[in-house]
Design a protein around this nucleic acid. Structure first.
Length: 450
DNA sequence: GAGCTAGTCAAAAGTCCCCT
DNA sequence: AGGGGACTTTTGACTAGCTC
């Protein structure tokens, strides 16, 4: 499932009647789309502006495709799901079946998750703020599209939502998954997530070797595991959460890979589709951090948990780059785009002298020359013309000299933000201008900001 | 009654794909 | 290889209903 909500124009439950609409589809099955469009016009849109009627019926048909009720193109072809829906005689049950489908297969759970987060943070909820929140989780919805409101209307009709409020009871009834169980899956770290997903993919009830599943995850999703830490970082947490069951292959301090299998919880149908939906946001936990106050981020940057540390520093980077008006493109770019190397965050700007920025966050005491050199190399691939290296520690003298040298000879701006600068920015966010200008003036006598 | 939102409606713009 | 129609998406205007 791509990161989007289905197109929903002219598919609002207020505009059409689902049972009738399904019947029209059955009646026109196998035919060209034109007669179906005519039938939809006659049934639902006959009172609308004449020039617009077919257009609207067309929108309705498009929405049917988007909602997985019709196949794409090739005349009127109903999907297996559409047929199933049509066979449900009771209107309430039919509506619930559609909503189940929305939750399971059409990113409905992501919408729910977003709403939960917004409620928790006491944010104002409107169609627009929801679109914005979805977009910050990697969606690309237009502010004015009907996708969100139409899905909301269906969820309302089935009682999963009341307005924007979630009826958790109704929701878990339909999804057979409680909020707590959802959270278990929602808060997985990437390596745990991909491991579990690979295990779900095997669709096997039996015990399987953990190392095999790990390889499968690597082959399928390109995720790499730190093997020495594998048991601690993946197997243990998943077992503790009741998401997998294990059987030790050896007693005592044996080093043989354990056998793993799914638990009652993760055997459920909902789990795999849900994991698929979560794919778009699993790498974006950093988003959660964006809402925390800067002071809190500062505390987490010093956390002992290196994963938390990394997330917090990344979120901090995004926050301060936003201060200067850069648009966040993506985080943790990896794999083929950068030939295996990693860059933490990428930004675009239309206003500043330097238009594309790459930000690397370093959690270490010192930033060395070769780390800077690696970023310079990546800037060619990513076509960036400004590099920010942000560290909680300090930048080595050699690395600074190298950066200055590069800036003098290439059209590349390298800015170092050290631990002390981070503190200064937290105390006074506008300090960032000063710091950036100081860094670039060093070498090029060019100010980043006027 | 001003200001806001959600929902609806209308229209235009953009993209895709098939056919010649 | 390109023209045209089908399909998709975006945009903006309007209205009802709510709140202050």
């Amino acid at each position: 499932m791509p990161n989007t909500l289905p197109f929903g124009t002219q598919f609002s439950p207020n505009q059409i009647e689902l049972p009738q609409l399904l019947q029209l589809i059955i009646d026109n099955e196998g035919d060209d789309t034109a007669p179906l469009i005519t039938a939809i016009v006659d049934t639902f849109f006959s009172t609308n502006a004449v020039e617009q009627q077919r257009n609207m019926a067309g929108n309705c048909k498009n929405s049917l495709v988007s909602y997985g009720i019709l196949e794409n193109g090739g005349g009127v072809r109903i999907t297996a799901f559409g047929r199933q829906l049509h066979e449900i005689a009771d209107e309430t049950e039919q509506c619930e079946a559609l909503v189940k489908h929305i939750l399971k297969n059409l990113n409905g759970m992501i919408l729910i998750d977003v709403l939960r987060g917004m409620h928790r943070n006491g944010e104002r909820i409107s169609k627009e703020t929801v679109v914005e929140a979805l977009n910050s989780r990697g969606f690309d919805l237009s502010r004015t599209s009907n996708n969100v409101p139409v899905m909301k209307l269906w969820l309302n009709k089935a009682g999963v939502l009341r307005g924007w409020r979630i009826d958790e009871h109704k929701l878990s009834e339909l999804t057979e998954l409680s909020e707590g169980e959802f959270r278990l899956l929602r808060t997985l770290r990437p390596e745990q997530y991909y491991f579990l997903r690979a295990l779900c993919n095997t669709a096997s009830e039996n015990y399987q070797r953990a190392a095999d599943i790990r390889q499968l995850a690597t082959a399928t999703y390109g995720i790499t595991f730190v093997e020495s830490n594998f048991s601690q970082s993946v197997i243990r947490p998943l077992t503790d959460r009741g998401l997998i069951e294990i059987q030790r292959a050896t007693g005592g301090h044996g080093a043989r890979t354990p056998l793993v299998k799914l638990t009652e919880l993760t055997k459920r149908d909902i789990v795999l589709p849900l994991l698929q939906q979560l794919e778009g946001i699993i790498d974006r936990e950093v988003i959660e951090y964006l809402q925390k106050p800067l002071e809190e981020l500062r505390t987490d940057i010093d956390a002992t948990d290196s994963y938390l540390k990394g997330l917090a520093l990344e979120a901090f980077a995004i926050r301060i780059m936003r201060i200067i008006g850069l648009d966040f493109i993506q985080t943790r770019l990896k794999g083929n785009e950068t030939a295996g190397a990693e860059v933490d965050v990428l930004f675009d700007s239309s206003r500043l002298l330097y238009t594309r920025w790459q930000v690397q966050c370093k959690n270490t005491h010192r930033v060395s020359l070769d780390q800077v050199a690696k970023e310079v190399g990546l800037s060619h691939v990513l076509k960036t013309n400004a590099i920010v290296i942000m560290t909680t520690g300090v930048v080595s003298e050699k690395a600074r000299e190298y950066a200055t040298q590069i800036m003098k000879t290439m059209n590349l701006c390298i800015i170092m933000v050290e631990g002390s600068d981070i503190d200064a920015i937290i105390a006074e966010p506008t300090k960032i201008l000063e710091i950036f200008n100081r860094e670039s003036l060093n070498a090029k006598h060019i100010k980043v900001f006027e």
